[in-house]
Amino acid sequence: MMDIAIYSLVDDMVSKAGTEGVVEYWLRVGESYAERMGKEAYVGWPAFNVAMKEGRTSLTVEGAVNVLTDLAIIDKDGDVIGYVYALKTCPMAPTMRRYISRIGPIPDSDTDVADSYNNRIRDSAVSNYCITHQKFREVAANNITVAKQALECLQLANKGMTGDVKMVQENLARINVDERHIKSILRSASCVFALIVKGKSAGEEILE
């Protein structure tokens, strides 16, 4: 029931703090959630990927993740700097389904808040909940080290309830993965992201 409250809460918050205020609230929640989960360290990518598959990392509290080990991200020296991961089911999906069946259509404030985020911060939210979810991943990734190197989460793509897709082109370019490949992954997933060594980029020098 707590999850269903999101829609009336966001509706109410939009009337009091505006869509921008709600975006700020969600960003703080995502950050605080990830910070309170604590830090993690893995000896290398195989250990980390096994933990992701088994759902033992802070990043997998959101649900089961496909670890796409065939999509290793390589830097200019040929070293593996990260992998692509696909979240099978959006954590909001059961709530949305229940809200629609028990209460009615999803309120417009959901799209209004997502649009506010997309227009001002990054065009990557298909619902208002994506804001806190993506922020959570970004901060949680910074609290994980693999072979003593901190990680960075790059949001790549996600799919909304009605099938609308958001792609973050600059992140796709950074890991040098083709958009069509990510679209094919999205057929059986709701969200695709990459975890790479912080500051690294495929085929280039370390970013500042």
């Binding site: 707590m2 999850d3 509290v61 959101e62 709530t95």
Partner: peptide, 9 residues
């Protein structure tokens, strides 16, 4: 529901 969502609320 997904508890990830519940906790964030």
């Amino acid at each position: 529901s997904n508890p990830f969502v519940d906790v964030s609320v």
